[in-house]
Write a protein that binds this DNA or RNA. Structure first.
Lengths: 153, 153
DNA sequence: TCTGCTCAGTTGCTATCTGCAACCTATATG
DNA sequence: CATATAGGTTGCAGATAGCAACTGAGCAGA
Protein backbone atom coordinates (compact mmCIF):
# COMPACT_ATOMS: atom_id res chain seq x y z
CA UNK A 1 0.00 0.00 0.00
CA UNK A 2 2.66 2.38 1.12
CA UNK A 3 5.24 3.35 -1.49
CA UNK A 4 8.33 1.26 -1.10
CA UNK A 5 10.69 4.16 -0.79
CA UNK A 6 9.17 5.25 2.50
CA UNK A 7 10.94 2.32 4.14
CA UNK A 8 14.28 3.76 3.14
CA UNK A 9 13.52 7.24 4.41
CA UNK A 10 15.65 6.79 7.47
CA UNK A 11 18.47 4.68 6.13
CA UNK A 12 19.03 6.16 2.69
CA UNK A 13 18.91 9.86 3.16
CA UNK A 14 21.71 12.33 3.62
CA UNK A 15 19.66 14.78 5.64
CA UNK A 16 20.45 13.11 8.97
CA UNK A 17 24.12 13.10 7.98
CA UNK A 18 23.99 16.78 7.12
CA UNK A 19 22.20 17.63 10.33
CA UNK A 20 24.81 15.77 12.31
CA UNK A 21 27.33 18.33 11.08
CA UNK A 22 25.31 21.55 11.09
CA UNK A 23 22.01 20.75 12.79
CA UNK A 24 22.73 22.10 16.26
CA UNK A 25 21.51 25.39 17.54
CA UNK A 26 23.83 28.24 16.52
CA UNK A 27 25.63 26.31 13.77
CA UNK A 28 23.84 28.08 10.96
CA UNK A 29 24.25 31.46 12.60
CA UNK A 30 27.97 30.92 13.01
CA UNK A 31 28.18 29.94 9.37
CA UNK A 32 26.26 32.99 8.31
CA UNK A 33 28.78 35.02 10.28
CA UNK A 34 31.62 33.28 8.51
CA UNK A 35 30.07 34.01 5.12
CA UNK A 36 29.80 37.64 6.18
CA UNK A 37 33.46 37.99 6.97
CA UNK A 38 33.70 37.03 10.63
CA UNK A 39 36.81 35.01 11.39
CA UNK A 40 37.74 35.35 15.05
CA UNK A 41 36.31 33.97 18.26
CA UNK A 42 35.62 37.35 19.80
CA UNK A 43 33.98 38.59 16.61
CA UNK A 44 31.55 35.69 16.54
CA UNK A 45 30.95 36.03 20.24
CA UNK A 46 30.18 39.71 20.29
CA UNK A 47 28.30 39.78 16.99
CA UNK A 48 26.06 36.81 17.73
CA UNK A 49 25.84 37.11 21.50
CA UNK A 50 26.43 33.39 21.82
CA UNK A 51 27.79 31.91 25.06
CA UNK A 52 31.56 31.38 24.91
CA UNK A 53 31.49 27.69 25.78
CA UNK A 54 28.86 26.96 23.15
CA UNK A 55 30.76 28.94 20.54
CA UNK A 56 33.93 27.08 21.43
CA UNK A 57 32.13 23.77 21.13
CA UNK A 58 30.46 24.61 17.79
CA UNK A 59 33.64 25.92 16.21
CA UNK A 60 35.51 22.81 17.29
CA UNK A 61 32.77 20.62 15.94
CA UNK A 62 32.66 22.34 12.57
CA UNK A 63 36.44 22.19 12.40
CA UNK A 64 36.22 18.44 13.06
CA UNK A 65 33.70 18.16 10.26
CA UNK A 66 36.02 20.23 8.05
CA UNK A 67 33.40 22.87 7.46
CA UNK A 68 35.72 25.43 8.99
CA UNK A 69 39.48 25.35 9.28
CA UNK A 70 41.31 26.70 12.29
CA UNK A 71 44.25 28.92 11.35
CA UNK A 72 46.47 30.28 14.11
CA UNK A 73 47.79 33.71 13.14
CA UNK A 74 51.60 33.59 12.95
CA UNK A 75 51.84 37.36 13.45
CA UNK A 76 49.87 37.35 16.71
CA UNK A 77 49.91 33.99 18.33
CA UNK A 78 46.91 34.72 20.49
CA UNK A 79 44.71 35.01 17.48
CA UNK A 80 43.06 32.19 15.59
CA UNK A 81 41.17 32.62 12.35
CA UNK A 82 38.29 30.33 11.47
CA UNK A 83 37.77 30.11 7.75
CA UNK A 84 35.27 28.31 5.58
CA UNK A 85 36.56 25.33 3.68
CA UNK A 86 35.22 24.36 0.28
CA UNK A 87 32.85 22.02 2.10
CA UNK A 88 31.68 24.90 4.25
CA UNK A 89 31.34 27.30 1.34
CA UNK A 90 29.06 24.86 -0.40
CA UNK A 91 26.55 25.31 2.38
CA UNK A 92 25.74 28.75 0.97
CA UNK A 93 22.71 27.59 -1.04
CA UNK A 94 21.23 26.04 2.10
CA UNK A 95 21.80 29.21 4.06
CA UNK A 96 20.42 31.48 1.39
CA UNK A 97 17.41 29.28 0.78
CA UNK A 98 16.66 29.31 4.49
CA UNK A 99 17.06 33.05 4.66
CA UNK A 100 14.86 33.67 1.65
CA UNK A 101 12.21 31.45 3.15
CA UNK A 102 12.38 33.23 6.49
CA UNK A 103 12.19 36.56 4.74
CA UNK A 104 9.14 35.61 2.73
CA UNK A 105 7.21 33.65 5.32
CA UNK A 106 8.34 34.63 8.80
CA UNK A 107 10.00 37.98 9.24
CA UNK A 108 8.30 39.60 6.26
CA UNK A 109 11.03 42.19 5.88
CA UNK A 110 13.97 42.02 3.47
CA UNK A 111 17.18 41.00 5.20
CA UNK A 112 20.30 43.12 5.28
CA UNK A 113 22.96 42.86 3.96
CA UNK A 114 21.80 41.48 0.64
CA UNK A 115 23.73 38.95 -1.38
CA UNK A 116 24.27 40.41 -4.83
CA UNK A 117 25.66 39.28 -8.11
CA UNK A 118 28.95 41.23 -8.19
CA UNK A 119 28.80 41.97 -11.89
CA UNK A 120 25.17 43.04 -12.16
CA UNK A 121 24.96 44.51 -8.63
CA UNK A 122 21.54 42.97 -8.28
CA UNK A 123 20.26 40.55 -5.62
CA UNK A 124 20.59 36.87 -6.37
CA UNK A 125 17.52 35.02 -7.63
CA UNK A 126 15.23 33.07 -5.30
CA UNK A 127 16.67 29.62 -4.79
CA UNK A 128 14.53 26.96 -6.40
CA UNK A 129 14.45 23.32 -7.33
CA UNK A 130 15.15 23.10 -11.05
CA UNK A 131 15.31 20.43 -13.74
CA UNK A 132 18.61 19.42 -15.31
CA UNK A 133 18.01 22.04 -18.01
CA UNK A 134 17.49 24.83 -15.47
CA UNK A 135 13.69 25.01 -15.76
CA UNK A 136 12.17 25.74 -12.30
CA UNK A 137 9.97 22.95 -10.98
CA UNK A 138 6.97 23.15 -8.70
CA UNK A 139 6.02 20.33 -6.34
CA UNK A 140 3.42 19.13 -8.83
CA UNK A 141 6.14 18.55 -11.39
CA UNK A 142 8.20 16.45 -9.00
CA UNK A 143 8.19 12.79 -8.05
CA UNK A 144 10.06 10.69 -5.54
CA UNK A 145 11.46 7.70 -7.36
CA UNK A 146 13.66 4.79 -6.38
CA UNK A 147 17.18 5.39 -7.64
CA UNK A 148 17.24 2.12 -9.45
CA UNK A 149 14.37 3.28 -11.63
CA UNK A 150 15.94 6.57 -12.63
CA UNK A 151 17.41 7.02 -16.07
CA UNK A 152 20.84 8.23 -15.02
CA UNK A 153 23.40 9.91 -17.24
CA UNK B 1 37.38 49.12 9.92
CA UNK B 2 34.76 46.43 9.94
CA UNK B 3 32.19 46.53 7.12
CA UNK B 4 29.11 48.30 8.31
CA UNK B 5 26.76 45.50 7.45
CA UNK B 6 28.30 43.22 10.04
CA UNK B 7 26.60 45.27 12.72
CA UNK B 8 23.24 44.34 11.32
CA UNK B 9 23.99 40.65 11.10
CA UNK B 10 21.91 39.88 14.13
CA UNK B 11 19.08 42.33 13.77
CA UNK B 12 18.43 42.31 10.03
CA UNK B 13 18.56 38.71 9.01
CA UNK B 14 15.75 36.24 8.51
CA UNK B 15 17.83 33.21 9.40
CA UNK B 16 17.09 33.44 13.12
CA UNK B 17 13.42 33.83 12.28
CA UNK B 18 13.51 30.77 10.05
CA UNK B 19 15.35 28.74 12.65
CA UNK B 20 12.77 29.69 15.23
CA UNK B 21 10.23 27.80 13.14
CA UNK B 22 12.23 24.84 11.87
CA UNK B 23 15.56 24.92 13.70
CA UNK B 24 14.89 22.33 16.37
CA UNK B 25 16.13 18.81 16.25
CA UNK B 26 13.77 16.58 14.24
CA UNK B 27 11.93 19.40 12.51
CA UNK B 28 13.69 18.87 9.19
CA UNK B 29 13.29 15.13 9.39
CA UNK B 30 9.59 15.44 10.04
CA UNK B 31 9.32 17.77 7.06
CA UNK B 32 11.24 15.37 4.87
CA UNK B 33 8.74 12.71 5.93
CA UNK B 34 5.87 14.99 5.04
CA UNK B 35 7.37 15.66 1.60
CA UNK B 36 7.64 11.91 1.15
CA UNK B 37 4.00 11.26 1.81
CA UNK B 38 3.81 10.70 5.55
CA UNK B 39 0.73 12.23 7.09
CA UNK B 40 -0.15 10.48 10.33
CA UNK B 41 1.33 10.51 13.79
CA UNK B 42 2.04 6.79 13.87
CA UNK B 43 3.64 6.93 10.42
CA UNK B 44 6.07 9.64 11.46
CA UNK B 45 6.73 7.89 14.72
CA UNK B 46 7.51 4.47 13.31
CA UNK B 47 9.33 5.73 10.22
CA UNK B 48 11.57 8.18 12.03
CA UNK B 49 11.87 6.42 15.38
CA UNK B 50 11.28 9.71 17.14
CA UNK B 51 9.98 9.78 20.71
CA UNK B 52 6.24 10.29 20.85
CA UNK B 53 6.30 13.32 23.10
CA UNK B 54 8.88 15.08 20.93
CA UNK B 55 6.92 14.27 17.78
CA UNK B 56 3.77 15.59 19.38
CA UNK B 57 5.57 18.76 20.37
CA UNK B 58 7.18 19.35 16.94
CA UNK B 59 3.97 18.73 15.04
CA UNK B 60 2.13 21.16 17.29
CA UNK B 61 4.87 23.72 16.84
CA UNK B 62 4.90 23.45 13.07
CA UNK B 63 1.12 23.65 13.02
CA UNK B 64 1.37 26.84 15.08
CA UNK B 65 3.83 28.21 12.57
CA UNK B 66 1.49 27.16 9.76
CA UNK B 67 4.09 24.97 8.15
CA UNK B 68 1.78 21.99 8.60
CA UNK B 69 -1.96 21.93 8.94
CA UNK B 70 -3.74 19.51 11.24
CA UNK B 71 -6.70 17.83 9.56
CA UNK B 72 -8.85 15.45 11.60
CA UNK B 73 -10.17 12.68 9.39
CA UNK B 74 -14.00 12.83 9.32
CA UNK B 75 -14.23 9.16 8.29
CA UNK B 76 -12.21 7.93 11.26
CA UNK B 77 -12.22 10.39 14.06
CA UNK B 78 -9.20 8.86 15.75
CA UNK B 79 -7.02 9.79 12.82
CA UNK B 80 -5.43 13.15 12.17
CA UNK B 81 -3.60 14.04 8.97
CA UNK B 82 -0.75 16.50 9.00
CA UNK B 83 -0.28 18.17 5.64
CA UNK B 84 2.18 20.69 4.32
CA UNK B 85 0.86 24.18 3.76
CA UNK B 86 2.15 26.41 0.99
CA UNK B 87 4.56 27.85 3.54
CA UNK B 88 5.76 24.38 4.37
CA UNK B 89 6.03 23.31 0.75
CA UNK B 90 8.30 26.25 0.06
CA UNK B 91 10.86 24.75 2.41
CA UNK B 92 11.62 22.15 -0.25
CA UNK B 93 14.62 24.00 -1.70
CA UNK B 94 16.16 24.22 1.78
CA UNK B 95 15.61 20.53 2.35
CA UNK B 96 16.93 19.47 -1.02
CA UNK B 97 19.95 21.76 -0.77
CA UNK B 98 20.75 20.29 2.63
CA UNK B 99 20.35 16.78 1.33
CA UNK B 100 22.50 17.37 -1.72
CA UNK B 101 25.20 18.85 0.47
CA UNK B 102 25.08 15.90 2.88
CA UNK B 103 25.21 13.53 -0.05
CA UNK B 104 28.23 15.19 -1.59
CA UNK B 105 30.22 15.99 1.54
CA UNK B 106 29.13 13.73 4.38
CA UNK B 107 27.46 10.47 3.52
CA UNK B 108 29.10 10.14 0.12
CA UNK B 109 26.36 7.90 -1.19
CA UNK B 110 23.40 8.98 -3.29
CA UNK B 111 20.21 9.22 -1.25
CA UNK B 112 17.11 7.24 -1.95
CA UNK B 113 14.41 7.97 -3.02
CA UNK B 114 15.53 10.55 -5.55
CA UNK B 115 13.56 13.66 -6.42
CA UNK B 116 12.97 13.66 -10.16
CA UNK B 117 11.52 15.97 -12.72
CA UNK B 118 8.24 14.20 -13.50
CA UNK B 119 8.32 14.96 -17.20
CA UNK B 120 11.94 14.10 -17.92
CA UNK B 121 12.20 11.35 -15.26
CA UNK B 122 15.63 12.66 -14.37
CA UNK B 123 16.95 13.85 -11.00
CA UNK B 124 16.63 17.53 -10.26
CA UNK B 125 19.69 19.74 -10.73
CA UNK B 126 22.02 20.63 -7.87
CA UNK B 127 20.60 23.62 -6.05
CA UNK B 128 22.71 26.70 -6.53
CA UNK B 129 22.80 30.42 -5.99
CA UNK B 130 22.05 32.07 -9.31
CA UNK B 131 21.85 35.55 -10.75
CA UNK B 132 18.54 37.09 -11.74
CA UNK B 133 19.07 35.73 -15.27
CA UNK B 134 19.64 32.18 -14.02
CA UNK B 135 23.42 32.15 -14.41
CA UNK B 136 24.98 30.13 -11.53
CA UNK B 137 27.22 32.19 -9.26
CA UNK B 138 30.26 31.12 -7.29
CA UNK B 139 31.25 32.81 -4.03
CA UNK B 140 33.82 34.88 -5.90
CA UNK B 141 31.05 36.40 -7.99
CA UNK B 142 29.04 37.39 -4.93
CA UNK B 143 29.09 40.40 -2.63
CA UNK B 144 27.25 41.36 0.52
CA UNK B 145 25.84 44.82 0.03
CA UNK B 146 23.67 47.11 2.10
CA UNK B 147 20.13 47.03 0.75
CA UNK B 148 20.05 50.78 0.35
CA UNK B 149 22.88 50.54 -2.17
CA UNK B 150 21.30 47.89 -4.32
CA UNK B 151 19.77 48.81 -7.65
CA UNK B 152 16.36 47.23 -7.10
CA UNK B 153 13.78 46.56 -9.79
C1' DT C 1 -23.05 -4.29 24.09
C1' DC C 2 -18.88 -6.03 25.64
C1' DT C 3 -13.89 -6.85 24.25
C1' DG C 4 -10.18 -5.72 22.31
C1' DC C 5 -7.48 -2.91 19.20
C1' DT C 6 -5.80 1.41 17.02
C1' DC C 7 -4.62 6.26 16.92
C1' DA C 8 -2.99 10.15 18.95
C1' DG C 9 -1.45 11.77 22.26
C1' DT C 10 0.19 12.74 27.85
C1' DT C 11 2.86 11.84 32.08
C1' DG C 12 6.89 10.97 34.87
C1' DC C 13 11.44 10.32 35.10
C1' DT C 14 16.31 10.51 33.58
C1' DA C 15 19.99 12.08 30.58
C1' DT C 16 21.88 15.36 27.70
C1' DC C 17 22.47 20.02 26.08
C1' DT C 18 22.30 25.15 26.69
C1' DG C 19 23.39 29.44 28.80
C1' DC C 20 25.52 32.46 32.10
C1' DA C 21 29.24 34.06 34.88
C1' DA C 22 33.55 33.53 36.58
C1' DC C 23 38.01 32.02 35.92
C1' DC C 24 42.41 30.73 33.37
C1' DT C 25 46.56 30.74 30.22
C1' DA C 26 49.43 32.50 26.66
C1' DT C 27 50.67 36.29 24.31
C1' DA C 28 51.08 41.07 23.16
C1' DT C 29 51.51 46.10 24.33
C1' DG C 30 53.05 50.33 26.81
C1' DC D 1 57.19 44.99 34.69
C1' DA D 2 51.91 45.91 34.74
C1' DT D 3 47.99 45.63 32.13
C1' DA D 4 45.13 44.25 28.31
C1' DT D 5 43.55 41.03 24.86
C1' DA D 6 42.42 36.54 22.47
C1' DG D 7 40.69 32.35 23.04
C1' DG D 8 39.36 29.51 25.57
C1' DT D 9 37.69 26.18 30.26
C1' DT D 10 34.98 25.25 34.53
C1' DG D 11 30.93 24.92 37.47
C1' DC D 12 26.51 25.10 38.05
C1' DA D 13 21.25 26.08 36.98
C1' DG D 14 17.74 25.55 33.85
C1' DA D 15 15.83 23.93 29.48
C1' DT D 16 15.34 20.31 26.17
C1' DA D 17 15.44 15.43 24.51
C1' DG D 18 14.55 10.62 25.05
C1' DC D 19 12.42 6.40 26.96
C1' DA D 20 8.70 3.76 28.82
C1' DA D 21 4.40 3.43 30.63
C1' DC D 22 -0.13 5.10 30.66
C1' DT D 23 -4.60 7.36 28.98
C1' DG D 24 -8.73 8.12 26.49
C1' DA D 25 -11.50 8.50 22.51
C1' DG D 26 -13.11 5.88 18.62
C1' DC D 27 -13.74 2.06 15.76
C1' DA D 28 -14.58 -3.10 14.58
C1' DG D 29 -15.99 -7.72 15.36
C1' DA D 30 -18.54 -11.26 18.09
Amino acid sequence: MKPDHQKSLLTNCAIPAALEAVGERWSFLILRGAFNGLHHFEEFQSTLGIARNILSNRLARMVEHEILKREPDPADRRRVAYRLTEKGRELLPVLIALRQWGEKWVSGVPSNPVLVDRAARRPVAPIAVTAADGRPLSLEELDWVDRAEVAQG
